[in-house]
Nucleic acid binder design. Sequence first.
DNA 1: AAATAAAATGTTTGCGAACACGCGGAGAGG
DNA 2: CCTCTCCGCGTGTTCGCAAACATTTTATTT
Lengths: 357, 357
Amino acid sequence: MKDKIITIKDIATRAEVSTGTVDRVLHKRGRVAPKVEEKILRIIKEMEYQPNIIARALSSKKTYSVAVLIPDDAHDNYWFAPKSGIKSALKDLKKYGLSVKYYLFDPYSSQSFVEQAKLLEKDKHDAIIVTPIFHREVLPFLEKWKKANTPFVFFNTEISDFEPLSYIGQDSYQSGYLAAKLIHYGQSAPCSVLIAHFDEETSNAAHLEKKELGFKNYFQQNNLQQFDLLRVDISRPNHNTFVKQMDEVFEANPNIRGVFVTTSKAFEVAEYLTQKHIRDVKIIGYDLLPKNIHYLKQNVISFLINQNPKGQGFWALQMLADKLIFGKAVPQLKYLPLDIVTKENANYFLVEDVEHI
Amino acid sequence: MKDKIITIKDIATRAEVSTGTVDRVLHKRGRVAPKVEEKILRIIKEMEYQPNIIARALSSKKTYSVAVLIPDDAHDNYWFAPKSGIKSALKDLKKYGLSVKYYLFDPYSSQSFVEQAKLLEKDKHDAIIVTPIFHREVLPFLEKWKKANTPFVFFNTEISDFEPLSYIGQDSYQSGYLAAKLIHYGQSAPCSVLIAHFDEETSNAAHLEKKELGFKNYFQQNNLQQFDLLRVDISRPNHNTFVKQMDEVFEANPNIRGVFVTTSKAFEVAEYLTQKHIRDVKIIGYDLLPKNIHYLKQNVISFLINQNPKGQGFWALQMLADKLIFGKAVPQLKYLPLDIVTKENANYFLVEDVEHI
DNA sequence: AAATAAAATGTTTGCGAACACGCGGAGAGG
DNA sequence: CCTCTCCGCGTGTTCGCAAACATTTTATTT
C-alpha cells in the first residue's frame, strides 16, 4: 500500500478543508487563513505529496513560451545542430504546453543581435535561451531580464559577469588539453606543433584562449619540452591572406607535424595542406561540419572534438522545462562529454534522428 | 488556427457519431459497423488526429510491467551501469504507469539464468528486456514469448536466430576497426600487435570474433603489412595461467608494442605490464570499470572504448515504452556511438546523474 | 408479427489538478 | 442597524480520454 498516490483530495480530507483551499496553498494564491495554511503545508510534507504533473499538464491550459536567441544557421551552419537539438527536446515537451520562438541573428553582426534581442523583448516570454557571443551588447539585456525575473540559460558560450540559471557547454580548457594528448599520442618524435586560431568568429576569444591554455599545459605538465609550440592567428577569412600566413609559418618551421585548430575551421588547414601536398601533419579540430567530415574521411584531419552542439540545444531547453514545468532543481553548470570523433566512428555522431516538427 | 488540437470529440462530430464509437475504433474494440469504422478511420487520417497521451495516461489506470532479465551486478559490476540506465529511463516513464521487475542471474551460471527466466514466466509481463548471453538456454524461452506475443528487446548481446522488437548495442566489428585505428595512429613504426581474448566470459564468442575481424581488417584494408598481428586466448581467469601465457607470448615476440583486449579485462594486461615494468606497450580495451579507469589514469591503458552500458539500458526501456505507451515505431537496430575514452576526457563519461529511485 | 437476441451506437463518470465563481460571515462606514 | 466590501473557504466545471453503462437499432427466431 506504500505506493498509493497522494492527491490533493487526500490532503484536503486529512486537513479537513476543501481541495480548493489546498490548491490555493499549493499555488500561493493567498486567501487562506495562516493557521490553515500552515496545517496544510505540514500535511503535504508528512504525506510526501507529489503533484501529478500529468494531470497538471492536462488541466492547466498554461503555456510556456521560450525565446531562443541564437545565430542563424543560414550564416554559419554550425548553428543548425543546436536548433535541431532544441527541436528534438521540444517534441517531447510541447505536450506540456511549451512552445518556442526563435530570434535568429547574424553571428557576424552585433547590430543584428541587438535588433533580435529588442524584438524578443516585445513579446512576453517565460524563459530565454541565449548564446551570448556579443559580450558587450548582451549585458544590458541580461540586466533587464534579471530585473523582470525571466530565467535565462546560456549555451555554447559562457559569460562570467552574469549568473544564468544554467550554462550548458563544454569545458574549453579540458578540450584543449585533450587535443594535446591526441597530438602527442600520435607523434612521439620531437617536432613543432602549430596552434591555429581563426578569430574571424565573433569574440569567442575567451574560449579560444582557454583551449590554447589547456593545450599548452598538457605539454608542460607532462614535461614534453621536445615539442615546440607555435601560434598563428588567422585574422580574416580572406583566402589569400590565409595562404600567405600559412606559407610563412610553414616555411619558417619546416618541422611542424601537428596542427591544433581551435575553431571549427580545421577544414581550411586541411585544404591548405592537401593543396601543398603535405601529408605528414596531423590535424585536430572541432565540430562535425560537412567540410570537416570530408577531410576526416580522407584521413587529412585525424580527430575532431565534437562540441555536441545538438546535445547542447537539447539540454538547454530540457533544463528550462525541468525548472519551469517540472519544478526540478537544475545544475548551474552542465558540461557535455568531449567526444573524440575519428574516421572510424564518425557515423554514429552524424545520425539525425530528429523528426521534423 | 492551424495548431488547433484535434480531439476525439472533433472526430466524432465530423463523423456524426459519438465519442464512444470513435473510441471503439481507436482501440479496435469492435462492435462498430464496418462502414462507420472506415469513415472514422478516414477522418482520423484526414484530420491528422494525434491522441493526447497526457490525457490518456491520466485517464487509463492501465499499467505496463516490464521484466528485465540481466546479469546481477553483484557478480560482475559491469552490469551496474545498464541497470542504472534502466532506472534513469524509468524515472520519467513511471508517470505513464510503467513499472519494472528485475530478474537477475549469475552471468557465470546458465542454470541461474534458466531459473530466473522461469520465475519471470510465472508473472505476467507486457514486455521483456533480456541480455541473451546463454544462447542455447534462451532459445526455448524466446519461442514461448513469441507465441505469447510478448515483445522483447535484446541489449548488449545480439542473437541471430530470433528477431527481437529491437536490439540495442554496439557494432562490434566497427569497434574493433576503431581500436585498430587507435593503435595504428599511436604506433607508426613496424611492430607486433597482440589481440587478447579473455574468453572466461560466457559465450560472447561471436562478439569477440567480430571485434577481432574488424581489428584485422583495418590493417589489411590500409595495407599495413608492417604490423604483425598475434592472438592469445586467455581461457581461464586463473592468475598463474594468465601470467604464464603472457610470459610466453612476450618472450616469443619481443616486438609487441600494442595490445587490443577484446573484453573489459584490459586491466589484467595493464597489471601484468606494470609488474613487468614494460612501459612502451599501448593498450586498448573496453568499458569503464573502476580498475580500467585506474590504469587509464596511470597512462598504462591508452584508450577505452565505451560500450555505453548505461545508455544501452536507458534505450532498451525507452524503446519499449515508445512502442507500448506511445505507439511509436521503433528501429529494429540501435547502435550506440563508439565513445573513445582516454585519461583526459574520462570524467565526462563517469558522471552518475541517476537519482536513486 | 411479436418476442427476443445481438449488434451498433450513445451517455456518463472519473482520472488529478487548475481555476473561476460565489456564498456566508466579519468588520467598516453611513 | 443596514448595507457594502473583503476575507476565507467550498463548489463546480474543464482538460482529453478510457471504459463502464445505457439505449437504440437491426437481425433472428417462433
